[in-house]
């Protein structure tokens, strides 16, 4: 009887956590929906009389939008989380990684948007989808390479720990590049909206502030992962390389998952 009650209690607890997660997802969507509507209305209301204050407001909303937008599911956070599961690092590194990704993300989004708009001119949506698919393929390939490298590093660090620091810096840049190279459609949409309304400079600033917001959220994913690594690392003691191996395998799986999802979209 006690056993059945225990199972029931565990099941209810699990359902409660799932329900909480669903509610979290819902609130994220609703917040993005409202911010999306608010930002477009505010950009459209921009005039010569209120340009400075309204522009600052737009940038503030763009930052918030980036913060919330990146809190939703996405492969960038997964990559960062798996990477830090595989690598010993401090919180400063998590911020560095988050912001490297966001800078590459912003540059990539700006290049793609202006490039498609001014060079290809027509069929923005179609070109955008095709180019995104190519960028996604490059990203997926790079992610698989990073994963293989992490597994190799974990295997090697078991034997030769002193070489790890030098190598790790290189893999950091590779992770940032592979996560950031795919331009965020959310950033691109805002930039394009500004271009359509001939607010070019505001579009560039909005892309940067939105990316800063996204960088902060991605950094938080890294911090969570580092905390997990520290706790699990202490628990595993000298067998910590097992966790590093798992992290590497998860990164490889993420790359493979991205490859398989490209054809589906």
């Amino acid at each position: 009887m006690i056993f059945i009650l225990d199972i029931e209690w565990r099941y209810n607890k699990q359902m409660y956590i799932l329900e909480l997660y669903n509610q979290f997802l819902k609130q994220l969507i609703m917040l993005q929906y409202q911010l999306n509507s608010y930002i477009s209305t505010t950009i459209r209301s921009l005039s010569d009389d209120n340009s400075l204050l309204t522009s600052l407001l737009i940038l503030g909303i763009a930052f918030l939008y980036g913060l919330v937008h990146a809190a939703g599911p996405g492969h960038g956070k997964a990559l960062v989380a798996f990477y830090f599961t595989s690598n010993k690092a401090n919180y400063k590194k998590a911020f560095k990684m988050g912001y490297m990704i966001s800078i590459i993300h912003a540059i990539s989004a700006l290049l793609f948007t202006f490039g498609i708009f001014y060079i290809l001119k027509t069929m923005f949506r179609r070109n955008f989808n095709e180019m995104s698919a190519i960028a996604m393929q490059i990203s997926a390939g790079m992610i698989v390479c990073v994963g293989v490298y992490l597994i190799y590093e974990a295997y090697k660090s078991k034997k030769l720990k002193e070489l790890q620091i030098e190598k790790q810096n290189k893999s950091e840049y590779a992770v940032a590049l592979s996560a950031g190279i795919v331009p965020c459609p959310g950033v691109m949409t805002i930039v394009l909206f500004c271009i359509v309304l001939k607010q070019y400079f505001l579009g560039i600033l909005a892309a940067i502030t939105m990316s800063i917001g996204m960088g902060l959220t991605i950094s938080l994913a890294g911090i969570l992962s580092i905390t997990l690594h520290k706790k699990a690392g202490n628990f595993l003691d000298k067998k910590g390389f097992i966790l590093e191996m798992i992290g590497g395998f998860l990164v490889v799986l993420l790359g493979i998952f991205l490859f398989s999802s490209i054809g589906h979209r």
């Binding site: 607890k13 699990q14 969507i29 999306n36 599911p73 996405g74 492969h75 956070k77 997964a78 998952f257």
Partner: peptide, 22 residues
Amino acid sequence: MKITLILLLICNILFAHPHTFI
């Protein structure tokens, strides 16, 4: 329980987030 949740979260973070609202 913890493993279920971790797997669930891993599956979820692989999915994309919305860019168009209808």
